[in-house]
């Protein structure tokens, strides 16, 4: 690679929040590392240093959480924080902005009260948003100790409660894995992959989410080693009603990242139309892309379409109308003021 080619690679990797991951993977491969031009290496080193700092912030936040949450309360870590305490290679180079916790819905009140007692506060959430989070979402509004680098998101399940995909909470909570040397648990690896797939294809606007696909790839490669394991993964996804998001995640992971995923089981593929529409959006908005002088009008439209898809998947139509109605009234009011 010529040094000029690195120019765009760094910009795109940074936008995709993958620069630290790429840097750590190159650092761990001396044969590659020695081919990197010095000036590029500088950027990679900077992202490795920054990531080390963020991961240290995660560990400090977890120490604070450990002390604040009642010892008898079972607490599960999701996503980045889970990969950090498990010491997965996937954690290297991450730059987390939040810590995601999962507790059974019945314990949500206790956990929230313990966090408030410990100094965590919700930031500027109005009454409607409070109600939105509490009734229709799978998490509470983000909380933070003033001055702390990271937010804490308290979840009670892994998919929005109003969406068509509803994780099987009984199955989910009965398969948790304790992490040695900590008070925390993590999802079992199958559920982690399924959660990553739900998070990406059911609970996001897809925009700039290449890193989530890289997570799916890394989790898959580290744990699904043969056809039997893959069959068990599909079975588990069926239990959670999440075969569709898993289908998209594994198919894109296979075709974009070369993940060694065997052929899909029959009858799982989404309809031709859904595949075409989701695929079109995903290919347009997921990979990082630079608009030097700001987004073009066509880009704005594509992102709006991705946003519409997100809302459509997340809420039944009646609730969606109500939610968008409220949000547009708020927007109008803020303009009039």
């Amino acid at each position: 690679m010529r040094i000029e080619d690195w120019d765009a690679v760094l910009v795109l990797a940074r936008q995709a929040r993958l620069l630290g991951t790429i840097a750590c993977r190159i650092r761990d491969r001396p044969d590659l590392a020695k081919q990197i031009p010095d000036r590029v290496w500088g950027h990679l080193t900077a992202s490795i240093n920054y990531s080390s700092h963020r991961l240290q912030m995660v560990r400090m936040e977890l120490a604070a959480l450990s002390a604040a949450l009642p010892p008898e309360l079972p607490v599960t870590l999701l996503k980045g924080a889970a990969y950090v305490v498990e010491g997965l290679p996937l954690a290297h180079g991450r730059m987390p902005n939040d810590v995601d916790l999962l507790v059974p819905r019945a314990n949500l009140g206790i956990a929230e009260a313990a966090l408030r007692d410990g100094g965590w506060e919700m930031e500027n959430v109005d009454e409607y948003d409070q109600q939105y989070y509490r009734q229709w979402s799978h998490e509470l509004p983000p909380m933070r100790i003033p001055g702390h680098a990271l937010e804490v998101d308290l979840h009670h399940t892994i998919a929005p409660v109003t969406s068509r995909v509803r994780a099987n909470d009984v199955a989910l909570f009965s398969a948790l894995v304790p992490v040695e040397g900590t008070r925390f648990r993590v999802l079992n690896r199958h559920d982690q992959i399924i959660h990553a797939a739900i998070h990406l294809f059911q609970d996001s606007e897809l925009v700039g989410k290449l890193r989530d696909l890289v997570d799916v790839d890394a989790l898959y490669r580290s744990s699904i080693l043969d056809q039997q394991a893959c069959d068990r993964l599909w079975k588990r996804a069926a239990q959670h009603g999440a075969t569709t998001p898993l289908w998209y995640a594994l198919n894109y992971s296979r075709s974009w990242l070369g993940t060694p995923v065997p052929a899909d089981p029959p009858g799982i593929e989404p309809s031709w139309l859904a595949r075409a529409m989701t695929g079109w959006l995903f290919r347009h908005v997921c990979p990082p892309r630079i608009f030097e002088r700001g987004k073009t009008p066509s880009r704005v439209l594509v992102e709006l379409a991705a946003q519409a898809r997100y809302h459509w998947l997340r809420m039944p139509p009646a609730l969606l109308v109500r939610h968008l109605g409220h949000k547009s009234m708020t927007a109008v009011r803020s303009i009039i003021r």
């Binding site: 040094i3 000029e4 690195w6 120019d7 000036r39 950027h43 030097e292 700001g294």
Partner: peptide, 11 residues
């Protein structure tokens, strides 16, 4: 042409 560390626009 060449490698640059920052790409800025004043618009």
């Amino acid at each position: 042409d060449g490698f640059d560390d920052f790409h800025l626009v004043i618009d």
